[in-house]
Nucleic acid binder design. Structure first.
Lengths: 243, 243
DNA sequence: CGGAACATTGACCCATGTCAAGTGTCGTGG
DNA sequence: CCACGACACTTGACATGGGTCAATGTTCCG
């Protein structure tokens, strides 16, 4: 997450003062996706594939943390077109945000185990505990950055680039968690991937086939992809190569 | 409402308790985009059109509030394709987020006056003041919701729908600030609009012409649009009508 | 008044959507 | 264990929205 490339040479004084404060904060705040102790005595839930955690317009009652499984967050247009705005995989939080009414839907895509913490409780604590409030702020900040990155992807990249970028994101996620970065598990269907990338199933399928044809990837099972050439995929995603 | 497949989740008590807490919070927290007093003794800055506040990779030093003018926040691909991830208009904040390195660029699109508050200072205060931290959280939450809405737009809507949605967003913003909701000022160029909507200048221009042809809008000056039929535009944006 | 930047419009093309088969793959019941 | 049906995925042929290229018009300033 937090990159080590803080040069801090040009802007010497301001930057180093700022860096000092950040180091302090980093010690005080838990890094990564953990809100932490607030989930210690949280209740557990297990929901089946396709069940909704909440839908747009619902009063928000809880924040969830995915223990295992996966969910998708999506919005729909009046005529049914669906945009998945994010996937929540193991370790991710669902439901952060200060609005009291949900502005999107959250649905499990496979059987999913969750920790649930009452929003009322969380906000109550955050009113008293600035560090908790800042951790909530940090968590949201990460979601916002990811959403903007994805907006860049959907707004500017072609189909091949979008798929490559998607695979690279999952690869980097694996890497960050000490897993094999070239074996990707896809708990979601092709339809989900399509709705996430702003494409159709057919296009997603064709792009998978084209990547396979160039042997950049292998499809071990339908939901397990092996990345043969991560560098080439990264290039493709960044628009260096042609699609 | 909460789905039947998550039974007994939202009891009457929990829900109303939550509502009570929210009412309390709404009283305590300033609504809207105001971080508030923290900007009281902030320094002022005025920058010219096309000047950057910061660029991707910079160490973040300040949070800015737009007093007048407008800026765009954008990301670029290796080959120069640009996605504007948001516009910051009068009253908006720029630079929120916990990352210490900027992940996007912020550039004035016209001469812009800004209040600047040191991030170090802001974080320092937020560590002690839970209410401030929660207001930061709220502000980010709004940005995230807007970005997701826009992702839905770019991922699923056609060109006409995107432009209509864009105009409607600005119209609603006017309305929320007590201005005329059918007179839209566009401080940004067609190129900016195109890069925001994930289209080309030509397509944006053609869509404006088509809307004009159907007399849903009039183009008073190049940067001032009059909405003649807000209801029809809203329908178009939501995908009820065909493009 | 002249030039540069911005915007519009038209003709054409291509990437991706649409429609239509066809091919796995998985879970259930016999 | 197999047979079946229901889904999910793949592949091909064709249509089309929006991109590209090019010419022209407009606006804004110096």
């Amino acid at each position: 997450m937090m990159q080590a490339d803080v040069p801090g040479f040009e802007t010497a004084r301001t930057a180093s003062g700022l860096a000092a404060i950040r180091r302090t904060m980093d010690r005080k705040l838990e890094r990564s996706s953990g809100i932490g102790t607030e989930f210690a005595n949280a209740s557990l839930r297990c929901i089946k594939a396709k069940a909704h955690l909440f839908t747009e317009g619902d009063v928000k009652t809880h924040v969830y943390k995915v223990l295992s499984g996966a969910a998708c967050l999506y919005k729909v247009l009046a005529d049914g077109r669906r945009q998945i705005v994010g996937f929540a995989l193991e370790g991710d939080l669902i439901g952060l945000g200060s609005a009291s009414i949900a502005t999107y839907n959250a649905q499990a895509i496979v059987t999913t185990r969750l920790q649930c913490v009452s929003l009322a409780h969380l906000l109550h604590m955050a009113e008293r505990d600035a560090m908790l409030a800042l951790r909530l702020y940090q968590a949201l900040s990460g979601e916002l950055a990811a959403t903007r990155e994805h907006l860049l992807c959907v707004g500017q990249r072609g189909a091949m680039e979008r798929l490559a970028a998607f695979l690279m994101t999952l690869s980097r996620r694996n890497e960050a968690r000490g897993r094999d970065r070239s074996t990707i598990r896809l708990p979601m269907t092709r339809t989900d991937i399509a709705d996430f990338l702003g494409l159709t199933i057919e296009t997603v399928s064709r792009c998978f086939s084209r990547l396979k044809g160039r042997s950049l990837i292998e499809i071990e099972q339908i939901s397990t992809i092996r990345l043969n050439d991560i560098a080439a995929l990264a290039e493709l995603a960044d628009g260096h190569t042609q699609s």
